[in-house]
Design a protein around this nucleic acid. Sequence first.
DNA 1: CTGTTAGCGCATTCAA
DNA 2: TTGAATGCGCTAACAG
Lengths: 345, 345
Amino acid sequence: MARRSPERLTIADVAEKAGVSLSTVSRVMNGSTTVDAALTQRVREAAVTLGYTASPLARSLVLGKTQTVAVIVPDLGNPTFQGALRGLSTGAAGENYHVLVADSFEDPSKEAELAREARRRSDGIVLCAPRMTDDELNELLPQISPAVVINRTPTSARVPVVAADYRSGFAQLLAHVKDLGHRKLLFLSGAEGSASNRDRLAAVDAFRAANPNIEISVLTGSVNFADGYASADDVIASDATAVLAFNDLVAMGLLGALTARGVDVPGEVSITGFDDIQFAQYTTPPLTTAAVPTPELGAQAWARMWDLLNGRQPAYNLAFGPLVVPRGSTGRPPKTGDDPHPAAT
Amino acid sequence: MARRSPERLTIADVAEKAGVSLSTVSRVMNGSTTVDAALTQRVREAAVTLGYTASPLARSLVLGKTQTVAVIVPDLGNPTFQGALRGLSTGAAGENYHVLVADSFEDPSKEAELAREARRRSDGIVLCAPRMTDDELNELLPQISPAVVINRTPTSARVPVVAADYRSGFAQLLAHVKDLGHRKLLFLSGAEGSASNRDRLAAVDAFRAANPNIEISVLTGSVNFADGYASADDVIASDATAVLAFNDLVAMGLLGALTARGVDVPGEVSITGFDDIQFAQYTTPPLTTAAVPTPELGAQAWARMWDLLNGRQPAYNLAFGPLVVPRGSTGRPPKTGDDPHPAAT
DNA sequence: CTGTTAGCGCATTCAA
DNA sequence: TTGAATGCGCTAACAG
């Protein structure tokens, strides 16, 4: 029953079967209206009975278009990029576009080459490269145009940008724990060079300036579960009553480690995450976090890429303001002996 | 500083610059050793100064190889397929292969066409299509060969298969809750046609036959958080003391709903998941589940694809036996008034 | 060892 | 309207 593919079918086979020239077949396949109805019919039938479909490779070569966009992500295991990939994939599929995905494995030195290579196999690049230096980025972007950048804004290159506003989100989280009464904070910051980490640090600086009476220290280099888990000792030693983790993964790791050590959250220490990944609400206690609509990030990135691909001016750059979702992992700080205002029940 | 691409660079530009023929450039670029050292040098230099790289499209067309594999998944949001994608991507990157990803959005009717289309843009397909019918699968696979199938075994088509042994995993979970003393079980089963769901049901049947004194009912159609959450009322009404969810997602949703209703887990009802996604250990209580090494699934799928691509006999089919990870969500059933064997401390 | 020639499969000029 | 010829950029036979 299964049709043995007779050495791959070409346009010539259809032409022969229909008794017309190659060009006529090509025209019919591409929906040219200037073809005689009878011939069109014959070609269609021949194509169907033969089971012919034009080779995307050959078309790509002659048309200069691949019907493919490439996404470069630093880590396919990271929920943020998974969400973005999903949103992008949905949008691309809607326009019959294909998606090539490349994981740089958090290695900024590979990202540029990966992007250039991917660009040659696609019509455009959606780039998530939070740790690439600004200089590299500025040099890279013109080479891989058209491109859309997610979650960072290049200093000189002009490209559409879709991002979450990490600074504003983090500022809100800081305000949240401040309002709860915390005066000794700890920020488990992410990778040194990461763009979104710089944004968070900017929020910290602004917060410090505005709240000189609040102490806030920074611990560097936590980006995933294991890092969060491993930071538990430092967290306990820090004596902070509220810990703001770089993201939900770090927060969950820390939460696990603290729970294992018998530290009460939020009784003894409050914890916040970032991103609001699907699982943040299922921890114990549920994680207070700043929600980022990652699939929407991908969808908007696609929208801009689609504009670019069609020679249109892409829509405005976009920054989603994360929403703080207060849950069980944050509460009032523990009362100290010298608490001037003991709760009056 | 950025080089304006002069209308796209071709092999002819390099040939001219180096003062040789196209073929010589081609030979050098492909590492042919039969080229004079001096010429080789000149060509290399020309290529570098020009910044030339061969067009993957043109090479693909003439070589008949795209250096790309395509993965078809039913849902990019599902941790199982995310893990597989990651493992596959890692393996492919190691051999300088690219990865095209297509999401069928749980629509079995689209999967075949998606796979065929993707196949034309790649050298092989890694297929995750749990709900496609067997007939469709058997008809599809020869058309998209070479292919590797994840998590199901086609009845007639001969392809390498890499899978998790859902039946054995589920049998272990059943044994686990039985050993804890549960006698009234409920299985929140997944999508009707899903292969891995059938495997779980087979485990249920075997269990029933071997344990006629244990009651086990089945509720159909839960595959994600929302489904799990929505099933809470049915679960409570069922009067079961142990609920085996289709997967971790369903279990987490159910857990959330029960917690919200004040039902004690595992005090009143025990819950098991499946997959052991990264987050299962962070729920409250942590989820008892059967661990499936999804990235390894992807890695092994790639290994077999790589064999296929090189004309080698692929390695044996593989079924990972999931490991039960007992955690806090399962415990002994609540004591009833007529419990014949009250715990003796 | 090198250059010339002929395709890979298709879209698109240009004549007819 | 249709067909024949040209080329997309490259590799691989084939001569030289």
